[in-house]
Amino acid sequence: MSEDKDEILDFALQMGCMMLESGAETQRIQWTMEMILSNYCSAAQSYVIPTGVFAGIYNTNATASATRFRRITDRRVDLERIMMLNDIARRFKRHELNISQSMERLEKVKQMTEFNPWIRLLCYGLISLAFTILFGGAAYDGFASFIVGILLGIAMLFLGKFRISSLITNIIGGIVITFFALLLLHFGIGLSYIKIITGSLMPLVPGFAITSAARDMAFGDIVSGTAKAAEAVFISVGITFGVLIVLHLRSVIM
């Protein structure tokens, strides 16, 4: 019985960590972990903050009770993973899978690949193009933002290979966007550098952080909500810092 307890806690924590690393919302992770643990005992609780997960099983018998936690380091958004993990948890709840089969499936989900880098680069360009047009830029501005967006994508994919602070990544992103927008304008491509910069910033801007902060707040997970809102401010300060460095240097030089 006691081995069983360790196994199920390990499985729930692993599931929670993987969901948190793929950017699932707090309520969904807590609910999934509790669903897994409820197969073992009815009084199970979990607590999720943006950098770690806690799981606990409570029994009248003290040896059958336990609380564990695990911290995560790497966070990104991966919707396909959330879908697969949700499926595994549902099957486990319906006793279609036992713990060892579920753990095997988790390993499989870990090995899933992302979209090919060329498609991701194209997406960076398309996001910049689309938002420049939506914010009222001319078609020529859109073309310039497409180029700037692809250059930003190259920088981001390159920086993604190293483990550096997101602040540094965002500052470099802001510098790359502003530098190339001004460079293209210097060679006569594009009409208004402000519109090009605002549109090209959209792949970096913390849209996801704001949405998930709003959702967590709405569902009452105020710890995650405030932490994610603060993260959004932190990201945007980083980006703007990069933009303003280049604009300031330009006004000093010219």
Partner: peptide, 12 residues
Amino acid sequence: VSAGAFAILFNI
């Protein structure tokens, strides 16, 4: 286009 491109970056 913008929503679809973000969806691909989020690995939908």
